[in-house]
């Protein structure tokens, strides 16, 4: 069974291909450049290199968010359109879970996060279980980092932080948690499409291409304001 993996949910763009949980190829870039322009050439190159035709694919796995709205849409749209066109299923996997899975051998809770601007982060809590199965302790959501760290502090157990945006929140994390915080090392901070493939092969459930939608974790600004206004009126 051959699965193609796509992750464009952050600045990191990743494409990988595996057959029966054996990685055949992986392409990752980590710099701010246009995913919409570069994703399909990357997929094309990888498949060409491996001498695999689109028709040989059995499924497509994609990081469905949270992350950059546009980035997530590029990956999800490409994955669902290609899967639909090939009549194969898709795996929509949390982009935070992909990152969390880098903490495979960590026994405490794992906190992957992606900066969401204005002091906020997209985050969740995960924990490794038996046979490398990763469990979701707190689902992905958007939260003020300060409030999130208060919550984590009360858990009173070691927490592994994994993020490309760690430096942005470093001082707040070390001030709030001191020794309770464990910081991921080098490449473990990077979301990898090969890890997305591991999740697809080992524990995720595939769905139909039509059903795949991004996970933004929040409404659009316009909708939020509209709802506030509407609720304000109802209260009055």
């Amino acid at each position: 069974m051959k699965i193609l993996a796509i992750d464009t949910s952050t600045h990191v763009m990743g494409v990988a291909l595996a057959e029966d949980n054996k990685l055949l190829g992986e392409y990752v870039t980590n710099f701010k450049k246009n995913h919409s322009l570069r994703l399909m050439p990357a997929i094309h190159e990888l498949l060409k290199e491996l001498d695999i035709k689109p028709q040989d694919l059995d499924a497509i796995a994609v990081a469905k968010g949270p992350g950059s709205y546009t980035g997530v849409r590029i990956g999800v749209t490409t994955a669902k359109s290609m899967a639909w066109a090939l009549n194969i299923p898709v795996y929509g996997v949390s982009s935070l879970k992909v990152l969390a899975r880098n903490g495979t051998y960590f026994s405490g809770v794992i906190c992957p996060f992606i900066d969401a601007r204005r002091g906020q982060v997209y985050t969740g809590l995960y924990k490794m279980g038996a046979e490398h199965q990763i469990k979701t302790i707190i689902s992905d959501h958007i939260v003020a980092m300060e409030d999130w760290l208060h919550y984590i502090k009360e858990k009173n157990e070691p927490v592994l932080f994994l993020s490309q945006d760690y430096d942005l929140h470093h001082s707040l994390i070390s001030e709030s948690l001191a020794d309770q915080a464990v910081v991921g090392n080098g490449m473990d901070m990077l979301p990898k499409p090969s890890v997305l493939l591991s999740l697809a092969f080992e524990q995720e459930k595939p769905i139909s291409a039509h059903a795949l939608v991004p996970e933004y974790t929040q409404r659009t600004e316009a909708e939020k304001k509209w709802l506030e206004k509407k609720e304000g009126k109802t209260d009055a």
């Binding site: 399909m40 689109p54 546009t70 849409r73 359109s81 066109a85």
Partner: peptide, 18 residues
């Protein structure tokens, strides 16, 4: 942002079927 959805969908469909 709206254009990108159509463009990426079209690329994926065209690529899938050569």
């Amino acid at each position: 942002g709206a254009l990108l959805v159509g463009v990426n969908a079209a690329k994926a469909i065209a690529f899938a079927h050569g």
